[in-house]
Design a protein around this nucleic acid. Structure first.
Length: 344
DNA sequence: GAGGCGTGGAC
DNA sequence: TGTCCAAGCCT
């Protein structure tokens, strides 16, 4: 263990006290309840919390409890998830709502073991719900906590949450007064003070116990993540219009943008000609190029080519009136495709 | 364990 | 402008 018991009590008490007076005003902090917290944690996975704050009230208004989501269809959840990315989270949230309804009487369980059974709930999310919604002394380590704890101990090892950090987190939360205040406070400190780029050490309640601050190593801890090389691929989208309606198809249930909708599109590892795209999509009329753009993901660089095509209304497509497009679950790249069509 | 899985803000 | 990053999970 990295800390003496006395240091642990100092650290936990300083964090709880700092958070009590410095907590930002997020909508879920007005009346925290387990389902709201669970939805918040799903939306917050790999997503900056300020963006979650805009979407969370809309999601909770439509789905105020697990039952309302459990009996709805997945499309409604995906619709409200548009633009947030990592759409598997939306599908897992819907599945989790169903499990809560069928296995847990519609309530969010408070123990880690039960929480970990829920699809889309890993060690962090389970710990966050148990500690923040139920005041359980359960550890959490997200990117913020990992950074704060590594700096606190001048631990230069791992770039991402590690066994070491989880042990430190557990040793602290075990002895804290309020797991809700301590865990959320530790995250909030990392998000607002002990930031990745330029930490505001002069505003930090832990400055006097921070080993990295003493050694002036805080800007190098933790080390940057190794990021995989982005693979370049090609997507060909065709806007098919017929009497004010556009043709759409749904992407398959797994992989990129799973379950989201798109205008007829071909994904390809290699460049294709207009004729090849037309043949693969079984379109009879010539495709007219109306624009191109690049869409960058965490693991791909996608070169989009956009075409338009005149066509009779075919039943194999789902036809949507132009003024109802906002109800269709579309990833951001497809919004860009539609923007190209609007300008053209 | 390494890669798939998005997006937009910050600098 | 390009690079890094974010309240991670799953396979």
């Amino acid at each position: 263990m990295a800390f003496e018991q006395e240091e642990i009590l100092q650290i936990t008490s300083k964090i709880e006290s700092w958070f009590t007076k410095s907590a930002r005003d997020f909508p879920w902090r007005n009346d925290d309840f387990p389902w709201g917290r669970l939805v918040c944690e799903f939306m917050a996975q790999q997503t900056q919390i300020d963006r979650v704050a805009q979407r969370w009230p809309i999601m909770l208004q439509r789905f105020p409890d697990a039952k309302s989501m459990a009996i709805s269809d997945e499309q409604g959840v995906l619709e409200l998830w548009q633009g947030l990315g990592y759409y598997r989270r939306a599908k897992n949230l819907k599945k989790t709502a169903e499990v809560l309804e069928s296995e847990f009487g519609g309530e969010v369980p408070s123990d880690i073991e039960s929480l970990l059974q829920l699809p889309g709930v890993g060690k962090y999310t389970a710990g966050a719900i148990a500690s923040i919604a139920f005041e359980k002394h359960a550890p959490i380590v997200d990117a913020n906590v990992h950074r704060v704890l590594c700096r606190l101990c001048n631990h230069a090892g791992e770039s991402t949450p590690s066994t070491w950090t989880w042990q430190i987190s557990e040793s602290l939360v075990t002895s804290c007064n309020s797991p809700r205040l301590f865990n959320e406070g530790l995250m909030e400190l990392g998000a607002t003070v002990c930031t990745s780029r330029s930490p505001s050490c002069d505003d930090c309640p832990l400055q006097s116990c921070c080993s990295a601050y003493k050694e002036n190593t805080q800007r190098d801890i933790p080390p940057s993540k190794k990021r995989a090389m982005k693979k370049c691929v090609y997507h060909y989208s065709v806007v098919v219009e017929h009497e004010g309606e556009l043709a759409f198809e749904q992407r398959k249930d797994s992989g990129l943008w799973a379950g989201m909708w798109q205008v007829p599109t071909i994904d390809s590892d290699i460049k294709l000609t207009e004729a090849q795209v037309r043949k693969k999509l079984h379109l009879k009329n010539k495709l007219v190029s109306i624009g191109e753009f690049e869409h960058v993901l965490s693991h791909r660089i996608i070169s989009f080519s956009v075409f338009s095509c005149k066509l009779a209304r075919e039943r194999r497509f789902f036809w949507v009136k132009q003024d109802l497009l906002h109800e269709l679950p579309l990833a951001s790249a497809q919004r860009k495709v539609l923007a190209v069509h609007c300008i053209a």
